[in-house]
């Protein structure tokens, strides 16, 4: 009969190493998560700086200064809003894929959403002051939870944005975010479900297909 023993030293050693490796992974995850937040933060800061810059130009415009060109301003806005959209993509990516979310993320997202809404206001004002009727704004209400049609809707909007980069401005807003202004917008436009589009102030509920959206944008709003 052979006497068998349990090699405790191996089990204990391996457990220690495993815990070390796991903590390395989790530490790295936290480190990366923080790095991402910092990057989002710095992009948001620069977006807000550009916003302030534009605000002053807009103020000049409303003072009816002829030297401020409506066209230049629209172009500048279009560029920044495009940037804002890309930042929004990254914010979404962080929100949906990041496993170890930094606590400051939700504040950042609110800050971002407010910045975005402020841009939307400026565009609306420019439309009024410059008489630009071919400028189309889309408020896109999406949700990261239980929204099966949001991915197709987002894809359709991305496609349209790539097709008409100049005069189409998309503002993607999280339906579930806890901000007064979002609640007010939802109330004003009677948005009750996701996905919903508010195109130049007009609400469309549920998935708006590519054909429908082309129809709305081209015939109704003369985008094409």
């Amino acid at each position: 009969m052979v006497k068998r023993r349990i090699a405790w030293e191996f089990y204990v050693f391996s457990a220690a190493i495993t815990i070390f490796i796991l903590f390395m992974g989790i530490y790295l995850g936290i480190f990366l998560s923080k790095g991402k937040i910092e990057e989002l933060q710095s992009e948001l800061t620069s977006l807000k700086l550009k916003q302030e810059d534009l605000v002053f130009e807009l103020t000049l415009l409303t003072l009816n200064n002829k030297n401020v060109s409506c066209n230049l301003l629209t172009q500048a806005l279009e560029k920044v809003i495009d940037e804002a959209g890309k930042l929004g993509d990254r914010v979404s990516l962080y929100e949906t894929t990041e496993k170890i979310k930094d606590e400051s993320f939700y504040e950042l997202k609110k800050d971002y959403t407010l910045t975005l809404v402020r841009y939307w206001f400026y565009v609306e004002e420019i439309k009024k002051n410059c008489g630009k009727s071919n400028l189309v704004t889309v408020l896109y209400f999406y949700s990261n939870q239980n929204c099966f049609d949001c991915l197709p809707q987002g894809t359709i909007l991305t496609y349209m944005k790539q097709k008409y980069p100049q005069n189409l401005m998309v503002f993607a807003l999280d339906y579930d975010i806890n901000l007064n202004i979002i609640s007010s917008l939802k109330r004003v436009y009677e948005v009750q479900k996701v996905p919903s589009l508010v195109i130049n102030g007009e609400k469309y509920e549920g998935l708006v297909t590519l054909e429908q959206l082309s129809e709305i944008l081209c015939s109704k709003h003369k985008l094409c």
């Binding site: 390395m24 992974g25 790295l28 990366l32 790095g35 991402k36 990516l93 894929t97 170890i100």
Partner: peptide, 10 residues
């Protein structure tokens, strides 16, 4: 950086 997280590490 947004495409790496601790799953990438694993």
């Amino acid at each position: 950086i947004f495409l790496i997280d601790f799953y990438t590490y694993f």
